[in-house]
Computed example of a mutant assay.
Amino acid sequence: MNVVLWIVQILLGLAFVISGAGKFVSPGPGARRQEAYREDFTPAQLRGIGTLEVLGGIGVVLPWATGIAAFLTPLAAAGLGLIMIGAALVHRRRKEGFAVNLVLLAMAVIVVVGRI
């Protein structure tokens, strides 16, 4: 079970670090259609969300890996789960697909339950 949790943690961490870092960059013309949700947020809000995603992505792996403040890992996963609930609601309101948000939410729940 520990190996499965590590795989989920690493995948979750990578997904959020990459996604969060992407919120600091303006999308190209082709990506604008896929990231239409950006219209609902100011640049400052996008940077704030990106910052939370990057910190959560780091927090879901690093504390448990180092053994320093390991209690932060399930807390970071819970925070990422809350972000995914908000993201799913935004995509649902815009009548866009939100399956990826639900998968990431499920992964976050697995980490929370497995690391408590």
Score class of each variant (00 low, 15 high):
48 G>E: 03
21 A>S: 13
19 S>A: 15
53 E>A: 12
65 A>I: 02
11 L>E: 03
34 Q>G: 15
20 G>V: 08
88 A>V: 06
86 G>Q: 07
26 S>Q: 13
85 I>Q: 06
112 V>N: 11
6 W>G: 12
5 L>D: 08
106 A>Y: 04
40 D>G: 00
74 P>D: 12
15 A>Q: 04
96 E>A: 12
95 K>Y: 04
39 E>F: 11
88 A>C: 10
20 G>S: 06
91 H>D: 13
1 M>T: 14
57 G>P: 04
112 V>W: 11
66 T>D: 06
63 P>C: 10
109 V>P: 03
34 Q>F: 13
100 V>A: 14
2 N>K: 09
4 V>C: 05
11 L>S: 13
44 A>D: 11
48 G>P: 03
28 G>R: 04
101 N>W: 00
30 G>E: 15
79 G>I: 02
55 L>F: 11
40 D>A: 14
101 N>Q: 11
16 F>K: 05
63 P>A: 10
66 T>W: 11
14 L>F: 13
36 A>I: 10
40 D>P: 00
88 A>I: 05
101 N>K: 00
34 Q>P: 00
24 F>C: 12
47 R>F: 09
70 A>N: 04
7 I>T: 14
65 A>V: 04
94 R>H: 01
93 R>K: 13
48 G>K: 05
1 M>Y: 13
102 L>D: 04
7 I>Q: 00
79 G>D: 04
72 L>R: 10
77 A>F: 06
49 I>G: 01
71 F>D: 12
41 F>R: 07
62 L>R: 01
43 P>E: 06
98 F>R: 02
116 I>W: 14
71 F>W: 15
43 P>W: 05
45 Q>H: 05
63 P>G: 08
94 R>F: 00
32 R>L: 12
53 E>W: 06
37 Y>C: 03
19 S>K: 02
85 I>D: 06
97 G>I: 00
24 F>Y: 15
105 L>N: 06
43 P>C: 08
29 P>W: 01
19 S>M: 06
69 A>D: 05
65 A>N: 02
58 I>C: 05
108 A>S: 15
92 R>M: 07
18 I>E: 05
42 T>R: 11
45 Q>S: 13
87 A>Q: 08
71 F>R: 09
114 G>R: 08
80 L>K: 01
23 K>Q: 10
26 S>I: 01
88 A>S: 11
21 A>W: 09
38 R>G: 07
106 A>I: 07
21 A>N: 01
75 L>D: 02
21 A>Y: 10
59 G>H: 05
73 T>K: 09
91 H>S: 08
109 V>Q: 02
115 R>P: 00
111 V>M: 08
71 F>N: 07
3 V>E: 14
44 A>T: 13
64 W>S: 13
42 T>S: 15
12 L>D: 09
10 I>G: 04
112 V>E: 12
22 G>Q: 08
82 L>W: 08
92 R>A: 14
42 T>Q: 10
84 M>T: 08
106 A>P: 10
17 V>M: 14
9 Q>I: 04
1 M>Q: 14
33 R>E: 15
17 V>D: 05
74 P>W: 10
12 L>H: 07
99 A>M: 09
75 L>Q: 03
78 A>C: 03
80 L>G: 06
57 G>W: 01
59 G>E: 05
111 V>R: 05
102 L>A: 07
88 A>K: 02
